[in-house]
Simulated scan of single mutants.
Amino acid sequence: MANSLNIAVIQTDLIWENPEANRKNLDDKINAIKTSVDLIILPEMFTSGFTMNATDIAETMNGKTISWLKQHAKQKECAITGSLVINEDGNYYNRLVFIEPSGKLTQYDKRHTFTLAGEHKVYTAGTKKITLEYKGWRICPLICYDLRFPVWGRNTDGYDLLFYVANWPKPRISAWDALLKARAIENMSYCIGVNRVGLDGSKYEYPGHSGVYDVLGNRIDDFEPNKEMTEIITLQKDHIQKYRNRLNFLNDRDNFNLEV
């Protein structure tokens, strides 16, 4: 069990609907990480940008990107995660995969499809929230629009880290900043948001604002907006236990019966 967890957060531009070019771009960024890390986090739909053109972009779970991720996880001896468009049994999913150095794969399908962009018309919504175990840390991975729904992200099973991968546009970036901080505070968990930068094929602008928050909602990263950059953050288990034991806020949470 590791008291600390070293995480590389990659805030990057994405080439519109071009998986091969995005893999090459990310090859350079991943290979540039010289420090030993436990986990690398990529943005939402990191092979394409936030596209509704699932038919042309979708891969399978045996496709090139999954193999590429497994190769990096093995070579870097760390886990790697992000979401991509997956075709499975005739349905399209905005699917996050978490791949460990051993090749073990855990997946999460985005629960809250973004109706404003018509995502619900193209992608099948997930129905299962997950908490995975990795190096003694309990981790809950979610995707973009899920951030607006606190009951879904609620810390009912004692996770240590909540993270969101995203393509969150500039006009609503103040909500992104506020909600990431709120999720950290209310769940007494580290909370990480990984957002892309640049313009997509529909001319929507993404300003980054990736962020890492501790259990009190303090920002502990140095990300700059509108800039491609990779930052390595060390999370400490002692920090979580110190404030949970001292404050006990999670003991007073309300109970919900969540229906999906």
Rank of each mutant, 00 (worst) to 15 (best):
Y145A: 10
K70T: 00
G90K: 10
R95P: 00
A117Q: 07
R111L: 14
R95I: 03
E133V: 05
S48W: 07
K70S: 12
V85A: 04
G63H: 08
K110N: 12
C140V: 05
T60P: 03
E77W: 03
S102K: 05
K74W: 03
L96P: 04
K121G: 08
S48K: 03
G126Y: 02
T127V: 13
G82A: 09
G103F: 01
K76G: 03
T51Y: 03
G63C: 11
M52V: 10
G103E: 02
F114C: 08
L84R: 02
L84F: 11
I130Q: 13
R138W: 03
Y145D: 09
K129R: 13
G49H: 06
T65Q: 07
K110S: 03
M61R: 13
L96W: 02
A58K: 10
K128A: 10
K70W: 01
L142R: 03
A79L: 09
N53R: 14
T47C: 06
A125P: 13
N87G: 06
W137I: 05
D56T: 15
T81G: 05
N87T: 11
M52I: 15
M45S: 13
F98N: 00
M61F: 13
E77N: 15
K110E: 15
T47G: 07
V122K: 08
L42P: 00
K76R: 14
T113V: 10
S67I: 04
W68N: 01
M52P: 01
K129E: 09
G103Q: 04
V85F: 05
F114V: 07
E88M: 12
M52Y: 08
F98E: 01
M45F: 11
M61V: 04
G103C: 04
G63V: 10
G118W: 04
K110R: 13
I80R: 03
V85N: 12
P141R: 05
Y92M: 06
I57T: 14
F98H: 01
Y92E: 08
K129Q: 07
H112N: 05
E88W: 07
K74D: 08
I86L: 07
M61T: 09
W68I: 03
Y134E: 12
T60V: 03
I40T: 12
M52K: 09
F114K: 03
T127F: 10
G103I: 00
K135N: 12
T124W: 02
I57S: 08
A73E: 00
F46M: 13
N94Y: 04
K128R: 10
Q71H: 11
T113I: 10
F114N: 11
K121I: 06
Y93T: 04
F46R: 09
A125G: 15
H72I: 08
A125K: 15
